[in-house]
Design a protein around this nucleic acid. Structure first.
Length: 493
RNA sequence: GCCCCCAUCGUCUAGUGGCCCAGGACGAAGCCCUCUCAAGGCUUAAACCGGGAUUCGAAUUCCCGUGGGGGCACCA
């Protein structure tokens, strides 16, 4: 039962860092478009000039690319329905808002911000809902034209029907009924000549042929307004899908920037730009956000391509979802284990070089299988594998002392191990483990004690990838030198 | 204050009137494996917000509460 190709769009405002919620809308947009053979579009909603942040638009584009949610049309890739930046579309909005005025669905308003504020305060004092009092709605077209001609500043408001009920249909929630008297004569065109979201988004979605509007549920409040605008134009409505909001991990309240600052200190972030630095993968992040608001019946570890196969807007859930960073860890780690050796090597290399380590690519390729199932985030490669790229290690002498033994005993064990290993032509997993195991047997020690000393001696750390595989990669010379050094350290204790 | 939305284990969710004394995943606990740490395997605890109604039968439909969330700008 194939469906018509969907045209979807993600339409963020370049007002700050790209957020998890934006990424999720983009993901679902992308999935729907790919699933139906349609197009996924990026549109920049920059009509609030005062809030536009330099670089934010670039961050959005970088973020989408990092997530591998490549858009078919957008500011930097073009397309047949451009421009894709709203400040470049001023004239289009003017044309459309004029037709609305001509049709009697909108009107010029000359009220000053000061007067509006006074009205608002008066209404609040009387415990009424704050709303525009409709003064300019009563102006005759002639008078309005006269005042415009005389140079008076004005805006355009939507003429909301006063009677009746608006029925708006959300795909996940069904029909939402709102009494029109609850609705306000919202501003469509601001005094700076730029449209508000209400006008711009409706015009663009129509002009760009958007078939499905996926957006956050914070838009539910203005949803009736939006369908009224679309209907006033006489346009066909898209399928409206209002997604659930993301809540703080506690479940108390919507996610905010403050939470991100807090989370960063724990190695997490709600900003896409931070994800790479923190060692998260696009696969992990996509999988994580996909499943907050979408119930997939069978499998939950999915690539984006697998998501495309399974995706349907019918499976989306309307209830708010508390984000859970432990799940991000889980999905990230799970995807890392799925990467090929070459792929994972390429992905972790930057984390080593970032620390100033010189990475030997052959060594890198050999350690990846050892690291793979130990990594939760990519930067975990540092704590597990930095020593592979260091000339020397500097173990903490106390860590060299085996459990239940003292320094002298430990030194003796290290000495014996040194002799066994130096008797081998090469230090390989196959050659070293049997004689060392035999030594454990005959000495009456346990493997933990003997191998523990060697681990700290050769890797410099108490926790490491498997010992023999690690020693093999470190190499005979370095291993022996490091053990020798450990013996010295133990003797000095 | 007014309007709107939502409501299944701690969290994300499956469930569209009988298949559910509610399934999966994360997390937690325990066991196995084991050279550390992981990974893996097995097991356990853990939920239908409350009350009415409809029905032979309700997690699933309806109503009322309650709780949570969002919105009430010349911001998006």
């Amino acid at each position: 039962m194939s469906i018509k190709p969907a045209r979807t769009r993600v339409a963020p405002s370049p007002t700050g860092h790209m957020h998890l919620a934006t990424a999720r809308v983009a993901l679902y947009d992308y999935l729907l478009a790919r699933k139906t053979g349609g197009q996924f579009i990026l549109r920049i909603e920059d009509t609030d000039v005062s809030r536009t942040v330099p670089g934010a638009e670039q961050e959005i584009m970088d973020g989408l690319r990092w997530l591998e949610l490549n858009y078919d049309e957008g500011p930097d890739v073009g397309g047949a329905f451009g421009p894709y930046r709203q400040t470049d579309r001023r004239e289009i909005y003017h044309v459309h808002v004029n037709t609305l005025v001509d049709k009697g669905h909108a009107y010029p308003c000359f009220c000053t911000p000061a007067r509006l504020e006074a009205v608002r305060q008066e209404q609040q004092k009387r415990k009424e809902n704050p709303h525009y009092d409709g003064t300019c709605r009563l102006l005759s077209p002639d008078e309005a034209a006269r005042r415009i001609a005389s140079g008076e500043k004005y805006i355009i408001r939507f003429k909301m029907p006063r009677e009746g009920t608006t029925i708006a249909k959300d795909h996940l929630r069904g029909e939402i009924l709102t009494e029109n008297k609850q609705l306000n004569d919202q501003v469509l065109l601001k005094s700076d000549g730029l449209p508000t979201y209400h006008l711009a988004a409706m015009v663009d979605d129509h002009e760009m042929g958007i078939t499905h509007v996926l957006r956050g549920s914070e838009w539910l409040g203005t949803f009736p307004l939006h369908v009224n605008i679309v209907r006033a134009f006489g346009w066909e409505e898209p399928v409206w899908v209002h997604l659930s909001v993301f809540l703080k991990p506690s479940g108390k309240g919507k996610l905010s920037k403050r939470d991100s600052t807090l989370a960063m200190t724990d190695g997490y972030s709600v900003f896409i730009k931070d994800m790479n630095e923190l060692g998260f993968t696009p696969e992990g992040v996509n999988n994580w956000i996909a499943l907050m608001g979408w119930g997939v019946a069978d499998e939950d570890v999915l690539s984006v391509d697998e998501m495309v196969d399974r995706f349907s807007i019918d499976g989306l859930t309307p209830s708010p979802a508390a984000i859970n960073f432990q799940k991000l860890d889980h999905f990230n780690a799970t995807h890392i284990r799925l990467f090929t050796t070459e792929d994972l090597a390429a992905r972790i290399k930057p984390y080593f070089t970032r620390e100033g380590l010189r990475v030997d690519d052959n060594v890198l390729l050999r350690i990846v299988p050892l690291l793979r199932e130990r990594l939760v985030t990519l930067d975990d490669c540092l704590s597990f594998g930095s020593f592979f790229f260091k000339e020397d290690v500097s173990p903490n002498p106390e860590d060299l002392v085996a459990k239940g033994l003292d320094a002298t005993q430990s030194a003796a064990i290290a000495q014996r191990a040194f002799e066994i290993l130096s008797g081998q032509p090469a230090i390989s997993h196959e050659q070293c483990e049997p004689p060392l195991r035999a030594y454990v047997e005959e000495s009456g020690l346990n493997a933990n004690q003997v191998f523990g000393i060697l681990r700290v001696a050769t890797t410099g750390q108490k926790v490491s990838p498997p010992l023999f595989e690690s020693m093999e990669i470190i190499g005979r010379e370095k291993c022996l030198a490091r053990i020798k050094n450990a013996i010295e350290l133990l003797k000095k204790m």
